[in-house]
Design a protein around this nucleic acid. Structure first.
Length: 475
RNA sequence: GGCACCGUCGCCAAGUGGUAAGGCCGAGGACUGCAAAUCCUCUAUCCCCGGUUCGAAUCCGGGCGGUGCCUCCA
């Protein structure tokens, strides 16, 4: 087997052939920093973080670029609304972006370029397009002439004639054709601006990615990703610009992640049904969010609702309980990941980065760990086998970006949070357990069971073992 | 109107030609004073109708239902 990637361009999975053997160059569209990030950004972030980790697991040397769009209408408008400078708004939101994405355990990309630092490269590309007759200046604006690029529409499977006839294409007097899009916009008073051969202005939205991708990854690189909503017009236009300027397709594989819905409704600002990442993080652990997000294949839509997150939290709690049990038993012993598990892991990754089946594999390994631990309890198991399974557990978890904390710590934290929620202290629980132990000692099982039932109703499960009673949360 | 996509167990969700992963919930068993945790076992023939094929959830056609894009958007 080898890596297969679903390519939006062809609409099917294709065998992966990197431009340079052993290397992967990947560009993922980041965010426009005019506001805080929402869970849609979280999904894109987590999905491509998984792809990044997965490619590295497969042994590729990965160069990962994720940009910041720091000049744009929305930024200008928002800054004006708030009465602050665009710079201040941008810096504020980039800082917030890192807080959110770091919290979600996203690995930092190799490069995180900002559009405004690549104006020179954009100007050069625009000039090339003009020189080739694929772009034209009009009243200080520069437009890409879509009619000069025959393959336009290939990515989004759109027919130029259908688009032409559509009534929703914006009309702009200075355009020769309604489909043409801006490469450069003449500056309006008060807007950020840079000098150019066509007068002062600022770049159009799409050109930044073409310029930065080319500058950092070359004229033809391997993977370009982003949300499904970017297929048209953003990526379609990017292809037109880059291919037009460089004379060859800029990207081999286009990957697009599906949307996040909220309670089965499309998430949108107009419906007011979006959540920021920080809002969700107040309620759920970042790893719960990752586990939930990665439990669905990246191309499928995913529904976001508290009930699903609660389910995922339960799942994660159990995985950590398993990890804790294994860790306590093996101590410092180590053993390599069993070949059969590694083989399956690779197979799942290679099948278009199927994180859902990787999550399934993790659950299966959890079962094996507990089974082996049960055997060891009965003096029939092999501690080294357990250590190998635990190594596999860690490896798979690491790929998913979970298990960032020692299990004991996670479990203690879960207890602490739960106690705070039900308004009890650990001492109170301990006292109740002591009373129950005394009742049991006196064979007063009715009393003992009553105490346990009371705790159970608060989500506290008392468990008896040979060495005494202990408890855990069931939230 | 144009173009894509989707419809799998109570819920979530893999699987894209060879007789249905996993999670949550549920049932039975082992274990337990009783439980819990854990382990074992069990629970679907894949929206409907045709067709192709030795064989289809997986391919083709039609229907019904849902979604997205076509405008800033992860």
């Amino acid at each position: 087997m080898s890596l297969r990637i679903y390519n939006t361009l062809s609409g099917q999975k294709e065998g992966f052939k990197p431009v340079n053997p052993g290397e992967v160059k990947m560009y993922v569209c980041g965010v426009t920093v005019y506001d805080r990030c929402h869970i849609g950004h979280a999904r894109a972030g987590v999905v491509f973080d998984f792809v990044f980790r997965a490619l590295q697991h497969l042994g590729y040397a990965v160069t990962y670029v994720r940009n910041f769009t720091d000049v744009d209408d929305k930024i200008i408008n928002r800054a004006a609304e708030r009465g602050i400078s665009c710079d201040a708004l941008v810096e504020e939101n980039i800082a917030a972006f890192y807080e959110d994405m770091d919290a979600l355990h996203l690995l930092r990309p190799t490069y995180e370029p900002r559009a405004t630092r690549y104006i020179a490269q954009m100007l050069a590309m625009i000039q090339t397009l003009i020189d080739k007759g694929m772009a034209y200046e009009s009243g200080g604006d520069v437009f890409f002439a879509v009619s000069k690029f025959p393959e336009y529409g290939k990515l989004s499977k759109k027919n130029v004639d259908d688009l032409e006839s559509g009534a929703r294409v914006s009309v702009n007097e200075s355009k020769r054709d309604p489909l043409d899009f801006a490469l450069w916009k003449a500056a309006k008073p008060g807007e950020p601006k840079w000098p150019s051969p066509w007068g002062e202005g600022r770049p159009g939205w799409h050109i930044e990615c073409s310029a930065m991708g080319k500058d950092l990854l070359g004229e033809a690189f391997d993977i370009h990703g982003g949300g499904k909503d970017l297929v048209f017009p953003h990526h379609e236009n990017e292809i037109a610009q880059s291919h037009g300027a460089c004379g060859k397709p800029p990207v081999s594989y286009w990957m697009h992640n599906g949307f996040v819905n909220i309670n089965k409704e499309k998430m949108s600002k107009s419906l007011g049904n979006f959540f920021t990442i920080r809002e969700v993080l107040q309620k759920f652990d970042a790893e719960v969010i990752r586990l939930y997000l990665l439990g669905t294949h990246y191309r499928s839509p995913i529904d976001f609702a508290d009930a699903y997150l609660v389910e995922a939290r339960r799942h994660l709690d159990r995985l950590y309980a398993t990890a804790d049990r294994a860790k306590q038993m093996i101590g410092a012993r180590t053993n390599p990941v069993p070949g059969s598990i590694e083989k399956r892991l690779v197979a799942e990754i290679e099948d278009d980065f199927n994180s859902a089946t990787v999550v399934a594999l993790l659950s299966e390994v959890a079962g094996k760990i507990n089974a082996e631990a049960d055997l060891i309890d009965k003096k029939k198991g092999d501690i080294h086998d357990l250590a190998g399974l635990y190594a596999a557990f860690q490896t798979i978890g690491g790929l998913l970006g979970i298990f960032n904390r020692p299990p004991a710590e996670y479990l203690a934290d879960a207890k602490r949070k739960h106690l705070a929620e039900i308004g009890m202290t650990g001492d109170e629980v301990a006292a109740a357990i002591t009373r129950r132990a005394e009742a049991r000692k006196a064979k007063n099982f009715a009393e003992a069971d009553a105490i346990r039932k009371q705790l159970e109703e608060k989500g506290i499960e008392v468990k008896d073992s040979a060495t005494g009673s202990w408890w855990s949360v069931n939230r």
